[in-house]
């Protein structure tokens, strides 16, 4: 996987500054708040992204925002993004229809270090819409199954109606070579599965070999410190715990400083970081309290 700053100098780098047109080829509503868009570059080229990387998506008149890939790079005919309707741009994106166009820049950032993860057991822990970027990694592992050890997925949604990618969840659950633990924070009358936050099945139902395991964690900020505590309790080291962080981005490529976290740019050095990189950085509020004495 390549980050923007690692491109060979011969490659046309203008694509990192100039949005390209991508066409919506399919749209699916995943929950009240979320839609899945399948896109194809107008040029019919592939983006060659890595799991955990993101794109800057734009709509003229509405703005631009970072959105993660939620499809695996092993599935090259198109790429998918999953968008929560939270503001100006994302709400407009919910009104897109097949045939409409968006602007895309990227792929950007350091995603999951899949080369380092090869041969290891993969423990994915997703909370809420954090399943979207992890789906890219999970399907990457699914498509190259023999290259990885155990594949464990712990996924928690707030409510059953907010569960994303229900078809994928069922497929992963049915696979003999995937170990899945799904939970919801608040059950409804129809829910027969687990109840409680993700750390509960993680603590009670997941046994790992800490030396062989890499954990990939994406979810709401409050989840991180609790998941980190559980994983350390299970004997993992901070180096093997990967967190994907979210900040306000502007340029998305290490130029404007909007996304700065102490001496790091989340857009360029991340969004995926090793827990060991975040320890001791006072602005990593997901894992530390702010106004900490650490600098």
């Amino acid at each position: 996987m390549r980050a923007a700053d690692e491109l060979p100098v011969t490659e046309d780098i203008t694509r990192f500054y100039r949005p390209e047109l991508a066409r919506v080829i399919a749209k699916q509503r995943l929950s009240e708040m979320m839609v899945l868009l399948r896109l194809q570059l107008n040029s019919a080229e592939t983006l060659d992204h890595g799991p955990g990387q993101f794109l800057q998506i734009s709509l003229p008149g509405y703005g631009e925002a970072p959105i993660s890939f939620c499809s695996s790079p092993t599935r090259t005919e198109s790429f998918e993004i999953c968008v929560a309707a939270v503001g100006n741009l994302s709400q407009a994106m919910h009104h897109l229809r097949p045939g409409d166009f968006v602007g895309v820049r990227g792929p950007y950032g350091h995603g999951f270090p899949v080369n380092d993860m090869r041969g290891r057991d993969i423990l994915c822990i997703a909370g809420g819409i954090g399943l979207a970027p992890l789906r890219s990694l999970i399907n990457y592992v699914a498509d190259r199954r023999s290259e990885f050890g155990r594949m464990i997925l712990v996924y928690g949604a707030r409510k059953p109606g907010e569960r994303l990618f229900k078809d994928d969840l069922a497929v992963w659950d049915a696979r003999d070579d995937f170990e899945t633990r799904y939970t919801v924070d608040e059950a409804d009358a129809d829910w027969t599965g687990r109840t409680g936050v993700v750390t509960i099945p993680l603590r009670d139902e997941v046994e790992i070999d800490p030396g062989r395991t890499t954990a990939a964690v994406v979810g709401p900020p409050v989840m991180y410190r609790f998941v980190a505590a559980e994983l350390l309790e299970k004997g993992m080291v901070a180096e093997d715990i990967l967190f994907s962080l979210e900040r306000r981005f502007k340029c998305g490529m290490g130029k404007c400083g909007h996304c700065q976290l102490n001496d790091l740019y989340v857009c360029q050095d991340g969004p995926v970081f090793r827990y060991s990189q975040l320890l001791g950085r006072s602005e990593a509020i997901e894992v530390w309290a702010p106004e900490d004495e650490r600098k």
Binding site: D185, V197, T199, R203, V222, F226
Partner: peptide, 8 residues
């Protein structure tokens, strides 16, 4: 949300 994690 945080309380749910703490209760966990």
């Amino acid at each position: 949300e945080t309380l749910s994690y703490l209760r966990g």
